[in-house]
Design a protein around this nucleic acid. Structure first.
Lengths: 266, 266
DNA sequence: AGCGATTGTCTCTTACAAGAGACGTGTGTA
DNA sequence: TACACACGTCTCTTGTAAGAGACAATCGCT
């Protein structure tokens, strides 16, 4: 292929490398993998590349893509042979949102919070055991790059991650993080015990602040949203410059915690 | 079951009734049907009802639902044995929106338009051959019920429908509407030829106004959004009380057409 | 023009998923 | 208490979908 853009690689076969044999895979699973793959890459992908990226047979991939396109879950991208998400997924997604109070209200809360403070604000949830930014509102600072919505980030990298695990015991926490998750983007290694201590502290104080974790220039303030007493369903967070004054940080945190609490009743 | 709420019925086997035989169905198709069924009913549904509603074997349905829940496309609804759309679908849907300029800008345009005019405004597109409200913004009138986002409505019932078909020839149009589509909600029957004339007129004038079509109290103003010269990709429309004055209607229409045109460049 | 790589379609085989149905349990009602 | 009817899980069979691979058509490069 003329384009050698990198594709997010795919766990070729779960645990220990390579096919157990030329084993067959259920069509539905292949289809789900396609969606997941597109989501991970966040752009239209050629069918050939799709097959390659998923270690799926080409013929099967063509068939599946055709079916998914007919169903409207995928659409052929403008230029011709690439595919990306389709309108149906948007419609289903909106239906999900309409049916989900926490999400609907959380989005609003996040939007107003970022408008009021001028800072980037986000709503985060656990999604299949990973930290996910469900909604984010950019804030008004000149340079504020927030990671894209829907991206999955290792729990230990974030303040929200510490709150989201607050309900679990040690075993539960260990099950949620892999060895790799404890390695920060800059290469530093986090100790599992430190992480667990952080979580305990977060549970007690009812908030969490991390500095320079996911990148060196930002501080992350997070507050829990409860769906039931003790059960953290989501978090709201603010992403601010790391040199934000103690005082302003305190103010923002108070505001954030108030808004998160307001969401919690539900 | 103790609840006898009506479920949107399912075309048991396409054209002429009933199974060709105890034929097997591909898992992926069953899964797609589940999604479509949930979308049609807009609420969580029990697995048993799902199987019944789709004429699918119970055992298969259980398996599929389990897989879809694991994948995050479905979620068990709060009370226990019902399922509805899952978070993953929301994430995929947002990804679709981010990747789709027209949709993203169209939503904004619709929101501002309805804020400025106080009327209900909608963005509509063709979705697998049917008219679909992709986004709607409620307006400020006391009683304005707009049909839910994502619902599929027969093309001949709407002003937008006439514009969306403006690019097609007679054959193309006939292929898009069934006999049933020509019967209005109140029972009146539309003539196919009249409908085709409407479409031709809409193409020439560049807008379309219908009165009391889908219900007796509203007028619908629609303007086309072009993705390429002559190709109608979407429509913007305003839903106003049927007794809106000629003058105000004219003003609103002008504003609407201007905004739709602004979207069209793309 | 000649070569290698990629695309999209098709055919054929067989591993396996879809489905029928039985089972145990729970729940409402007669 | 007994009945009818849901739910959720399991087992076994067989129809068929997943996959291997061959094919012609295009594309990009030299």
């Amino acid at each position: 292929m003329q384009e050698s853009e990198t594709l997010t690689e795919w766990p070729s076969d779960g645990a220990d490398e390579e096919r157990p044999t030329g084993s067959r895979e259920k069509g539905l699973n292949r289809a789900l993998n396609i969606l997941e793959f597109l989501h991970a890459n966040q752009r239209a992908i050629g069918i050939g590349d799709l097959a390659k990226g998923l270690n799926a047979p080409r013929s099967t991939t063509y068939t599946l893509v055709r079916e998914l396109v007919e169903a409207g879950l995928l659409e052929m991208a403008g230029d011709g042979n690439r595919v990306y998400f389709g309108k149906k997924l948007y419609l289903y997604g909106m239906a999900y949102m309409r049916g989900n109070d926490l999400l609907r209200r959380g989005r609003q809360e996040v939007d107003t919070l970022s408008r009021e403070t001028g800072e980037t604000s986000e709503l985060c949830m656990l999604q299949s055991g990973r930290y996910t930014i469900v909604h984010s509102s950019p804030g008004t600072r000149p340079f504020r790059i927030s990671s894209a919505t829907g991206l999955q980030i290792p729990l230990p990298w974030t303040a929200s991650g510490r709150l989201l695990l607050a309900g679990l015991d040690r075993g539960g926490i260990e099950a949620m993080v892999t060895r790799d998750d404890l390695v920060l983007p800059d290469g530093r290694k986090l100790e599992l015990d430190d992480f667990i201590d952080d979580i305990a502290r977060a549970r007690i104080t009812g908030y969490c602040v991390t500095s320079g974790l996911v990148d060196a220039y930002t501080k992350c303030l997070a507050a829990p949203v409860f769906s039931a007493p003790g059960k953290v369903e989501a978090t709201m967070c603010l992403v601010v410059p790391i040199d934000t004054s103690e005082e302003r940080t305190g103010e923002l945190l108070a505001l954030l915690r108030e808004r998160a609490a307001r969401l919690s009743i539900s």
